[in-house]
Amino acid sequence: MEAKVYKNNNSSIREFFCGLRIQSRVIGALILRELHTRYGRENIGYLWIILEPMLFAIGIGILHAGSDSSEFAMTDIKPVPFAIVGYGTFIIFRNIVNRSGGTIEANAPLLYHRMVSLFDMLFARTILEAAGIMCSVFILIFLSYCLGIGGLPVRPLYILLGQLYITWLSFAISAIVCAATYENATIERLIHPMTYFAMPISAIFFMMEWIPNPYRGWLEWVPMAQCIEMVRYGQFDSASGKYFDFSYLSFFCTITTLIGLLALRAIRRHITLN
């Protein structure tokens, strides 16, 4: 009996890893398809995935370059890297959520393939967006250091963790948006302005410790603000690590992901392939 149970367990483990390999190949193929569809091979081709967010972050950095605010005085927090890590991290959220609305319409023919799911489509887009933006942020941080207008990260792991958390959050929200906007053009048009309305509460242009209570207490409940605080804690030595909580972020992202996956499962039944 014990040998039979052990054999069944081994078989289940093998099936799991076999399925994981197949799923990884599917997501990899979807990433390559998305790269080719969006950027093609002309001009600089796939490098646009890094250059495009770099241009946005450079623009914000230039706007902050001449800042002489007292918050930046006498500390290692310089305006250009402050803007780069803040806005660069927010772009992850903005791009993933904004581009989730038309996912089903753009990729519906792929659902003819049994191994391709809505989860795979959204996950592939999420990885593509997040990887490109993360690379662009680290490149810009290094360039600001070379130009003498910024420093290297003092806690690089926290920058990576903050960006991974906001990627996780963005994927979960994009699943909800994808389901909600299917055959509903009104909601889809509202997504873009709503992501911009999220900017004031996402701590892009300020640090939590600069905000007086009770407003700071309210902002501590905003997951995006916590993610950006985590990234800034990774970049600057004098930044505070009191305003983000791994447990809260993990719980919030888990619940939001569950809601998103249930929404995708519900909407899948209503998708008709002609």
Rank of each mutant, 00 (worst) to 15 (best):
V5F: 08
S12Q: 15
G28N: 07
V26Q: 01
N43V: 08
F16D: 14
T37P: 00
I31Q: 01
G19V: 08
E15I: 13
I22L: 13
V26C: 02
N8E: 10
L30G: 00
C18T: 12
T37A: 05
I27L: 05
N43W: 07
I44P: 06
A29P: 01
C18W: 07
G28W: 10
R33N: 00
G40I: 01
L20Q: 12
S11M: 13
S12D: 14
H36V: 03
H36P: 00
V26M: 03
T37D: 02
N9A: 12
S12G: 15
N9V: 15
L20V: 14
E42T: 05
Y6A: 13
S11P: 11
Y6C: 06
L35I: 04
G28K: 10
I44N: 07
R25I: 07
R25W: 12
L30N: 00
R14K: 15
I13R: 13
L20K: 12
G28Y: 09
L32C: 04
R41A: 02
N8V: 06
R14P: 12
G40L: 02
K4G: 08
E34C: 00
Y6F: 09
E15Q: 15
V5A: 13
E2L: 10
S11F: 13
S24R: 06
Y39W: 08
I27N: 02
F16L: 15
R14L: 15
S12C: 13
R33E: 00
N9Y: 08
G19Q: 10
R41S: 03
S12W: 07
R38A: 05
V26S: 01
V26H: 01
G19S: 15
C18N: 10
